[in-house]
């Protein structure tokens, strides 16, 4: 077991490197000297705008969203005691999807004359509400007599996801070509719309979420033994479950509302760290945040550079980069002690 601080600083270094790389690389190429001038406000307005208003907020949003998705992924896997668990399973994603689709289709009818930012805003707000509403519903379905049954919640989440995807399908059936295209791109995610407003809006929620989930690290460790065992170790398990679910819904709802659905981060990053660093949640949550941030930053940098000046949806990149690496890791670990 490597020491905590060594890994921590390695991940911080990785994050700094990816941040630096992200500022450099882009459709509009900047020489190091130009970048320095732009950063210090001594270059042309265009370059300054590009660096300060486009690139940097986008990098920060990628970092925040990556951290959020990886941390909540790790937390839900612990809560559900299931390696396949993801925030998707508690209804966050499916609900956001349904509401976002509804907003896209309906805004075309009722907000057709409205400016683009209002239409975009309507989709974001709808997605956020959808995430919270469906999670709330799944939570209610799984709770009775003051207890939440996580196994029921898992199954209820799957049932609700099927229902909402039927609703989404109905909306797709109704939608125009353009809406269908928008919707498809939305499900593949994009950080293209990132501005300071989003960073400043999402930042506090995501950072608070990561902080509060990290505060429940010991309880999540105890949950690995089972709920009853966690209670016998002195935890108030019902409160822990409620906190984890609420923060997950809030944080993931925020992310989805700003970037659409970005898959795979919540699954691959925590498992990667488990294989490398072990499961102890005191390390896992923090490291997931750092590595998830770096990972999404790299994926987004690739997304906006490989087909520049166009952009690939980031969901394609996260799967394309993440899946083979994850498979390689699994195959490498297959012969060793059963780890997963």
């Amino acid at each position: 077991m490597r020491s905590f601080s060594a890994v921590f600083f390695a991940l911080i270094a990785l994050l700094s490197l990816t941040l630096l790389g992200g500022v450099f690389v882009g459709a509009y190429e900047l020489a190091p000297a130009e970048l320095w001038l732009a950063l210090t406000g001594q270059s042309t307005d265009l370059q300054q705008f590009l660096v300060w208003q486009v690139r940097i907020p986008r990098l920060l949003l990628a970092l925040l969203v990556g951290a959020a998705l990886a941390t909540t992924g790790a937390a839900t896997q612990g809560l559900f005691r299931n390696p396949l668990a993801e925030p998707t399973l508690i209804g966050v994603t499916s609900g956001a999807m349904l509401f976002a689709a509804a907003a896209m289709v309906l805004s075309f009818r009722f907000l057709a004359a409205a400016p683009a930012w209002l239409q975009q805003g309507a989709v974001s707000v709808a997605a956020f509400c959808g995430a919270l509403v469906t999670t709330g519903l799944v939570y209610r379905l799984a709770s009775g007599r003051g207890r939440v049954n996580v196994a029921t919640m898992l199954l209820a989440g799957i049932a609700i996801a099927a229902l909402t995807s039927a609703g989404t399908g109905l909306l797709i059936y109704q939608s125009s070509e353009q809406q269908l295209r928008d919707l498809t791109f939305w499900t593949l995610g994009s950080l293209g719309g990132a501005r300071w407003g989003q960073v400043l809006g999402a930042g506090p929620i995501i950072l608070a979420g990561v902080y509060f989930l990290h505060r429940d690290a010991l309880a999540l460790n105890a949950f690995l033994l089972g709920e009853r065992e966690a209670a016998q170790l002195g935890f108030r398990v019902q409160r822990v479950k409620r906190r984890v679910i609420i923060w997950t819904a809030l944080v993931v709802g925020t992310c989805i509302s700003l970037t659409g659905i970005i898959g795979f981060v919540g699954l691959v990053i925590p498992h990667l760290l488990r294989i490398w660093q072990g499961t102890d949640y005191r390390r896992l949550l923090l490291f997931s945040a750092l590595l998830g941030g770096s990972f999404l930053l790299v994926a987004d940098t690739l997304a906006r550079t490989i087909v520049a000046p166009a952009e690939l949806p980031i969901g394609i990149l996260t799967a394309l980069v993440g899946a083979p690496f994850f498979l390689w890791l699994l195959l490498r670990e297959r012969g060793k002690n059963a780890l997963l």
Binding site: G78, N221, E229, G278, T279, D280, N337, A338, L340
Partner: peptide, 13 residues
């Protein structure tokens, strides 16, 4: 309480 059987959902040391 020493439980009858313990299954760790993820490995710990």
């Amino acid at each position: 309480v020493l439980a009858q059987s313990v299954h760790l959902s993820f490995p710990l040391t």
